[in-house]
Design a binder for these strands. Structure first.
Lengths: 239, 239
DNA sequence: CCCGGTCTGTTCGCTATCGAACATGTCTCG
DNA sequence: CGAGACATGTTCGATAGCGAACAGACCGGG
């Protein structure tokens, strides 16, 4: 499933490095991350930004009573840590590894230095941030109006887009945490999807069998986010 | 209620102009806006950014079936149109006037020119954007977990912070659109608040009588957003 | 190969919210 | 001042999701 450490396959980082001039990034390192690793804690200073290669990050808000809700998903199309770019040194959110794998890690100071030096990196990063914002606002709307079934579809599609195969390693319990619903609700929704032949479930492994049908069952929210992400990620952009 | 056109009282714009060097903004104009005015339409090119003086903007996502959900609220602490700063020229969101009043309007090109010329404007704008992001993610979490009663409290507090008095002009129907719930739900929640002596309602006019109690009845979401907004808005910031 | 832990499936009553329908109150304009 | 438009209040099923409890299935380690 996880191949050996790969070359720079993060789309954002690839663009950044492609245009890099003289010096490179001395402290850019490849790190391996496991499912569930907490990368950022709520309101704690952020020290590194991460560029996923084949892992997926999840941004969550965890409430006082422990309930949680996923705010956005980050795969190899972008980066984790835009909030430091925006000038906050922390966020009220928690970042966890939703799918294990590798990511490139860069100290915040080094990334900021590059940002100051190069307009094109600014442009790229901000466009990606705009895509993230779209994801967040769509999540808000989706949370308000759509059923667990629809949201599960959205979640599966968002994850699928950030993975290579059609399989994901994820228990229903964890999905429930992400969606901010009960585990039983996910069990039922997943059961319905399985009965419809859309997915196949087995102890923490989901295989998507019929992606078109999955998209049909999904609410509009996935498509809106996808469209914006594609549009804004269409490198290069004219500054 | 609405005084005559005021000097520049928008906090963000004030900072921008305070540090302005030679030339000013030739096309910065004061405009008067009425409740319900649609400032941006979903996916339409954005031509102006707006700096509220005493009006309030609301960012909404409107679903295909017409249902809507408020994503964030913008008052004189910030600006409408950060998405153009981020490099999208549009968003899937709609912006409407939630509370009538005045705002300063600036053509996008002119604002972008200033951004390119001045690092401090970048910093200010991005910090504000980060505050907006916090608001959006908190909205997502709140939509997931909190009751209409709690969300109404949050909404009232967010609005109150952006107004001068303790009165707001807003029908239950419109609040329902913002929150993305039924009008009847708002009627019942507002009725409970009124019975508790927290607010007073009368045909489109709400008066907040007991703000401390309102904050007590509210979920944590308001406080989280407030704290971040204050923290990130604490001008000046060191670049 | 057995046992404890983990994951999934199922059930039951409960509550918040929905959708629809309708009643009443109040402002405004002709 | 009277009619309509608009804002609010109330009610009644229907339903999605919750909370809790428990059963069975599967896995991996001793």
């Amino acid at each position: 499933m996880t191949d050996a450490p790969k070359p720079i396959q993060n789309q954002l980082l690839a663009e950044i490095i492609k245009n890099a001039k003289h010096r490179d990034f001395p402290d850019l390192v490849l790190v391996e991350l496991s499912l569930g690793d907490a990368i950022y804690e709520s309101d704690q200073p952020i020290e590194f930004v991460y560029f996923p290669v084949d892992c997926i990050f999840s941004l969550l808000y965890v409430m006082i009573d422990g309930a949680s809700a996923e705010i956005s998903v980050i795969g190899n199309e972008g980066m984790l840590g835009v909030s430091v770019v925006m000038g906050g040194d922390s966020t009220p959110n928690r970042a966890v590894v939703q799918s294990k794998g590798f990511a490139y890690r860069l100290p915040v100071a080094e990334f900021k230095k590059e940002l100051q030096a190069r307009t094109d990196v600014w442009v790229l990063t901000l466009r990606y941030t705009q895509a993230l914002i779209t994801q967040m606002s769509q999540t808000a709307a989706c949370n308000r109006h759509h059923s667990i079934d629809q949201q599960l579809c959205r979640w599966l599609l968002l994850s699928l887009d950030r993975l290579h195969g059609n399989q994901l390693t994820m228990t229903q319990e964890l999905i429930a945490n992400m969606l901010g619903v009960r585990r039983e609700g996910v069990t039922e929704a997943a059961g319905r999807l399985q009965k419809a032949g859309v997915i196949q479930y087995q102890r923490g492994h989901i295989t998507v069998l019929d992606r078109p049908k999955l998209e049909k069952l999904c609410c509009e929210c996935y498509a809106v986010v996808k469209r914006e992400t594609d549009r804004l990620g269409s490198f290069p952009s004219k500054p």
